[in-house]
Design a protein around this nucleic acid. Structure first.
Length: 732
DNA sequence: GGTCTCTGGATTTTT
DNA sequence: TCCAGAGACC
């Protein structure tokens, strides 16, 4: 059987196993996606399972697309039409058919984070609260957490005694009402409403249970309660559940992921068997063993140990810089060195950090040194103002109840419908207990509006009607261009003629390209024209990471969270400092948070194939104050035999750091003439320190009125000392 | 309706 | 320190 030839014995076991429910613990780099795709291919090709009776679920569109492409390459074009999708797009697809049962209509729109934040702000005000007292962000967070725990607005208000949560409950209620009025679902609702649908309508549930004979879920450790519930509902004991995951790579508990879903899988799904994939194909022995040693420090985890046939490889480099500027320069220096010596490309390098703010210093230095880089997690393409404006036009055109979109475009470009006018409409809506959109369309009845303002609204509604009509008879891409022209949006940008405006025009054109690609794909796929709602759904469920272009030759910069699922020959983990990583907030809370940070470190380390660096700064600016920071405990938890201390190395190589112009220079070019002045210490001298014991002087630097010594101690490593005050003696 | 100023908040983020 | 968002002000 040729399919199985590409797999190792454990992987084959996982593919062949036909238990009703099976959990596979798949360690980092153990060929998890491979097993999933081969299993699907095996079911179709060898077991003659109908491809449409298979449901495969992942977390990101990127993973879904990747899986789909791999399946297509194994089984051919049927793969294209299979149910391979994210949780959210699966639910969206399902709800498009069934949501009328829940009181929405099929053309519902999906609110992204930004839309729902705007709506929540409005709800807070409507409830009579001040948004300075109750931040929309944290209220949204609380509501989202409640939803992730399967709590409705009613459940939530009933079950809380906390005064803050009482307020949230009130807003939660209003928010859900407003969503219904707008015929909109937020991301959490996609999952939640699907679960409600299944619970309220057993016959619908049964139809889907019967439909899906095989359900496969990737990254199961990232599922939240609702997602777990969804899979549990779909499982009827006759169909089969196959999930893959790694509890050591669970790094999203803060957004609702429940590690207990994977830990209790056997109980929840009446499964007796668990398989483990422990052979790693990615990293060198040194990197893998070090990562194993680190993760061993976590108390709550299932026992497993990854191993590899790969070669021993280089030691992990650790380096402590003076400050983050120097740290960035060190990274650059190493990248250039390795690139030259090992014939690597820029795209072979990745830099991971704990928080986005840390990217700034690295970026600045990359720009200065003209090193190509790409950064992930900045402003997403679909978050840009001009893109959101255009999508708001499309959304409002396809759903005239969507007042978040309406408020976004009502005066963009400016058409004289300003703050006061909107306020008047809002007041009218509130007084007559109707939605903002209804009040807007019935503006003729609003007495507080003067005829001049009514005229402007009339014109705007005419414009929208015209565009709607246009959309009926033209493609989405043509419609988009018509919006640019008829609203004057494009002209306004072109007239502005600034670099910023020009780049916005570029973005609009990029959006047009995206639309055209969608259209092309859909017409090729099923010969039917793409509906606006389908297009909007696909757009709103997409993220930037999905467009990750692996061909460009540039260094990758991203947060550790974003790094999951990727691999790079050379990895730098920067900012390995207490308070940054582990983050201060996890240090101050319980051990669970700290264990998640450790898993995050494990994830970062196991991305590296050949070479890993862990760097930190002694002095680090945070929120404008510079503080001395200790090296991350994670570096210390790994046995030091896995490391090479690059601070020592640099001095041994006779390289020096020139603080006056922030550059590494060769020591030979510098002139150290007065190396004895204050004391008679020399480079290479064996010395004894009162506290730290024996050491060796690696470097001497003359200061204005003192001498600074770099001493490598056997007990504590490298230290900087002032000769005048340090309790240091020369050893005879 | 646009610009200025103040204030608060600052892990991680997919969908 | 540095950014975004809200409200004041013109």
């Amino acid at each position: 059987m040729s399919l199985l030839n590409d797999l190792n014995p454990d992987q084959i076991k996982a593919v062949l196993d036909d238990s009703n429910s099976l959990l596979v613990f798949a360690g980092a780099g153990s060929g998890k996606t491979r097993v999933l795709t081969y299993k699907i291919a095996y079911l179709i090709k060898e077991k003659q399972v109908d491809p449409f009776k298979i449901l495969a679920i992942t977390f990101t569109n990127k993973a879904a697309n990747e899986m789909k492409n791999r399946i297509i390459s194994l089984v051919g074009n049927v793969g294209k039409y299979m149910w391979v999708s994210t949780f959210h797009s699966f639910c969206a697809r399902l709800l498009r058919r069934e949501i009328n049962k829940l009181g929405f209509t099929e053309n519902f729109i999906i609110y992204d984070t930004d839309d729902s934040l705007k709506l929540i702000s409005k709800c807070i005000k409507d409830a009579g609260y001040d948004i300075r007292m109750f931040s929309p962000k944290s209220i949204k967070e609380t509501i989202s957490q409640a939803k992730n725990k399967l709590k409705s607005a009613e459940d939530f208000s009933k079950k809380t005694f906390d005064p803050y949560e009482k307020v949230v409950a009130k807003i939660f209620n209003i928010y859900q009402d407003e969503l219904i009025k707008a015929n909109a679902l937020d991301f959490d609702d996609l999952l939640l409403h699907t679960v409600s649908l299944f619970k309220l309508f057993p016959e619908v549930l049964k139809a889907y249970q019967d439909k899906f004979e095989y359900i496969l879920v990737d990254e199961f450790q990232d599922t939240n309660l609702v997602q777990n519930e969804l899979i549990l509902l779909l499982f009827n004991g006759r169909n089969k559940i196959f999930v893959v995951g790694d509890d050591d790579q669970s790094i999203y508990s803060w957004r609702g992921a429940e590690i207990k879903n994977i830990v209790n899988f056997d109980k929840n799904f009446q499964s007796s068997k668990i398989l483990k994939l422990e052979k790693n194909y990615r990293s060198t022995k040194n990197i893998l063993n070090a990562a194993n040693e680190l993760i061993k420090n976590n108390y709550s985890r299932s026992k497993k140990k990854l191993w590899t046939d790969n070669k021993e490889g280089d030691l992990i480099s650790k380096y402590r810089a003076q400050n983050e500027q120097e740290e960035a320069k060190y990274v650059i220096k190493k990248i250039l060195e390795i690139k030259k010596e090992n014939l690597k490309n820029f795209k072979d390098f990745a830099i991971f950090y704990r928080t986005n703010a840390q990217s700034r210093v690295i970026e600045e230095n990359f720009i200065k040194e003209k090193i190509p880089y790409r950064i992930f997690g900045g402003l997403r393409f679909y978050d840009r103002k001009e893109i959101k404006d255009m999508l708001a036009y499309l959304k409002f055109m396809s759903n005239s109840n969507d007042f978040v979109s309406l408020q976004r475009i009502i005066n963009v470009p400016a058409r004289g419908i300003g703050h006061t006018t909107i306020l008047n409409i809002e007041k009218y809506a509130l007084k007559n207990n109707i939605g903002f959109c209804d009040a807007f369309f019935g503006f003729e009845k609003i007495n507080s509006l003067s005829s001049a303002y009514k005229g402007r609204i009339r014109n705007f509604i005419e414009l929208i009607d015209y565009l709607k009509d246009f959309a009926q008879n033209n493609s989405i891409s043509r419609t988009l261009e018509e919006i640019w022209i008829k609203t004057g949006y494009l002209k306004e940008l072109e007239n502005e003629n600034t670099i910023d405006a020009l780049s916005r025009v570029e973005n609009l054109k990029e959006l047009l390209t995206v639309v055209k690609e969608f259209e092309k794909r859909h017409i090729l796929d099923n010969g039917t024209e793409l509906e606006m709602v389908d297009f909007l759904q696909e757009i709103s469920l997409i993220s930037d990471l999905d467009n990750y272009d692996e061909t460009a030759d540039s260094v990758t910069l991203m947060t550790l969270h974003n790094a999951k699922g990727l691999e790079f020959p050379v990895v730098f983990m920067v900012g390995m400092e207490e308070g940054i990583f582990p983050h201060i907030k996890s240090i101050n809370s319980g051990y669970e948070d700290l264990e998640e940070e450790r898993r995050l470190c494990y994830v970062g380390m196991t991305r590296a194939k050949e070479k890993l660096f862990m760097t930190s700064s002694i002095l680090h600016f945070i929120y404008g104050d510079e503080r001395e920071r200790m090296q991350s405990r994670f570096v210390n938890e790994i046995p030091q035999k896995y490391f090479i201390d690059e601070n020592l190395q640099i001095f041994k190589d006779n390289l020096d750091y020139d603080y006056s112009n922030s550059r590494f220079t060769s020591k030979k070019t510098k002139n150290h003439t007065k190396e004895k002045s204050l004391n008679d210490f020399n480079v290479g001298d064996a010395v004894e320190h009162k506290l730290w014991g024996e050491g060796e002087i690696l470097r001497i630097k003359d200061l204005f009125d003192d001498v600074e010594l770099d001493v490598a101690f056997k007990s504590v490593g490298l230290k900087k000392l002032l000769a005048s005050i340090a309790p240091l003696k020369k050893k005879k």
